[in-house]
Every structure is written in C-alpha cells, then in structure tokens.
Amino acid sequence: MSVAALIVAAGRGSRAGEGIPKQYRRLQGQSVLARTLSVFLAHGNIRRTLVVIHPDDRALYEESVSVLPASSSALLPCVHGGETRQDSVRNGLEALADLNPDVVLVHDAARPFARPDLIDRAIAAAGRWAAAVPGTPVTDTIKVIGDQSEVLSTPDRFTLRAVQTPQAFRFPLLLDSHRQAAAAGLHSFTDDGALAEWAGLPVHVFDGDTGNIKLTHPADFHEAERRLKGDTMAYVTRLGTGFDVHAFADGDHVWLGGIKVPHERGVLAHSDGDVILHALTDAMLGALANGDIGTHFPPSDPQWRGASSDRFLAHAVELVRRRGGIVDHLDTTLLCEKPRLGPHREAMRQRIAEIAGLRLDQVSLKATTTEKLGFTGRSEGIAAQAAATIRLPEVSA
C-alpha cells in the first residue's frame, strides 16, 4: 500500500501561551512541528508527507522545516488550512488527490511523541478496517451531566477509549466523507473518526500510546521539556512580591489587568498605567531576583511611552521560562475606592491567564478599599500589590 501522512498544523493553539501557535514553540531548541515531522519523514512506509498550515504562518513553517535532516520520505509543499480543523484536513486531502495514496494518516502537529510502532499499527489498521483511530483506556470514572450539572449517567469506563492521532483511513473513503460533509454544510467536526462515522463508515479503534500526548497547556510543554531531557532535576519554589501606584489624572478610562475599564478619571503614567500588570511584573522579576520593571523598561526610554503593559508581564514570564522555570500562581490585590473590580474581575483573570500562558485557576484577583484612608481613600490614585510563585531548577552551590 502507498501511504501518505497529513499533518494538521493550521491551528492557533492560544491555550499554550507564549504568543505564537503551539506547533512552532520550541522544545529543546527545535519546534514542535519539526519534531513531529521528523517521526513521519523517517518512517520507511510513508511515501509522502504534507503539512497544512495557517496562511499567516509561512515564515514560521519555513524556519521549522529548514532544520529537518534529509529523508527518503518526500515532504510535499505545504497547503493552507481553512476556518476550522475539518476545513484544513479537507484542503490537505484535496492536495493529495492527484497522488491518490491507498492510505492516509491524519495527525495533529501538536503530538510530537508519536512512535514508529504506533504508526505501524495505524497503517496496519487502515489496511484491515479502512477507517481506524488509536485509543487508550480511560482510567477515570466518566459522568454524563445535564444542563444543571446533574449526573445523567455513568458509562462503563471499560467500554471507553480516549482517542488520539494518527487516525488512519483508506484515502478515497476519507476524501469522499469530507466532501459529503462540506456539501451538507457541516464544518465543525474536530475529529476525522467522528466525521467518518457521520458518513456511515464503520470506524475501529486500535491500541494507542499513553506517551503520545497532545501539547495544549503550558504545563504540557514543561512536561515535554523534562521528558526530552530525561529530566530528574529538582526545583526550588520562589515567591516574589510587587507593588505599583499611579495618580489619577484627566481621562475617561483606566487599564486594569489588561482590560480597558471606563472611569471618570485616567491615570498619570509613562505606559498605559496598568497597576495590576505592573505589580505582577515586579512580583515575577522579584522571584527571579532580576531587578524591577524600571530596570527592564526604563521610563526615560521613549519607546515605552503609552506601551501596553501586557508586554511587560509577558517579558517577565519569558524570563522565567528561559531559565527552565515554571510559573505556578499569580495573586493580586487592587487598592482603590473606585472603579469597582467586581464587574470586570473574570475578564481580567482571563486576560492575565492568556498573557502568562496559565490556566484560569492559577490567577487570583482581589480588591479592597482603604476605608477612606490615605491617597487611595481620598481617590487621588490607585494601587495594586501582587505575589508570584514560581519554580526554578535548583542549582548546586
């Protein structure tokens, strides 16, 4: 059988953090996509490999593939994806139509740990069943819940499988299924096995690999780094604190936690004056023992005039990660009489989590007045204090 691999790399991967799509983030100096491609290009039974990318990612893609070693498996010119994952896969299948391989393996670029034996099983499963997906046993008890979070049923976990990629199909059957779905106006299938089921194909499950993880959240990348290093490194926890204050001035809004909040006053500041992000930046730098926000972004430098403070916090987070560290938790208290935090709290938490590449439960945000005491009590200004908890590799003395 002739076999082609279709690597889906058109997603944005925002939950992974760091500002670039996760498939282009580096693991031990090499992009995730390059590591994923290396496995498929080196496999002796795969004749052609095609990558589907986002139109905006051409430069990132070219940089990734430029480091790949020569391989007997040809890497075809990439094609652009569509609005949804389903559209992207269909674009890739259409690009392979002239080659008309017997089997196509559809794989997520964000799974760089697929092993050759898993690919062998995928190819064999496609030959045997025509449509097959890898799956691993579910170890947790699963609950089906209703609109009010009530438990509707408890499936027998022994009949359940967590599905992975590469998913394996006879090429003409999968291409036809995708064309049927597009003609029916359906574009939201996130899994090719599910689309094949919709098209009436019997889909079988073959043994997956628990090590074939998908990189989604920042913590997944930390685990992947340690896995590649064979890392048994010990980590030390550090706590840093930060404080920032700005006087009120003329204006109609303030920036807080990366969110523009309407207010009867603005603040006097060189940048956008976001006291929450400034305090968090200083807390992170304090945990690193690496100066303060003024050291890294001097007010005397005109390039920071009016700058968005998310750049400051993102820089501090990047400094932690460059040292092999992990950001565990961010906690901030806003001190002011007005504006009220409550209506904007969750939007701010979400924005801080996005900037720092954290889960929402790793970001805490509180507020207090100062009982009319001091400059905040007199509504002359606004302040925030913050704490950041990080882990850094332990260094021997």
Rank of each mutant, 00 (worst) to 15 (best):
D87P: 01
G13N: 14
A4P: 03
G11Q: 03
L280S: 02
R90H: 14
S64H: 03
N91E: 12
I355P: 00
T216M: 14
L96K: 04
A269L: 09
S38K: 14
K260S: 13
R323W: 09
V67A: 15
Q167I: 00
L365E: 02
G135K: 07
R391V: 01
G211N: 10
R226G: 13
A131F: 05
A131K: 01
R345F: 04
R90S: 03
I259L: 14
G324P: 12
I53Q: 03
F297I: 10
H178P: 00
D147E: 15
T154H: 06
T369L: 04
A347Y: 03
A383G: 12
K22A: 12
W255Q: 07
L99G: 00
V203M: 08
A307C: 09
H222C: 07
L41A: 08
R170L: 10
Q350C: 04
W255K: 03
K260H: 09
R111H: 03
V363C: 06
A181L: 09
L341I: 09
R48K: 14
L27S: 01
G230L: 09
Q180K: 15
L288N: 02
A247T: 14
I355N: 00
T376S: 11
V245T: 13
V106A: 02
A269V: 05
S73W: 03
V363Y: 11
L319E: 14
E223W: 09
S88H: 06
I46V: 14
G377D: 07
H204P: 01
C336P: 02
G325D: 09
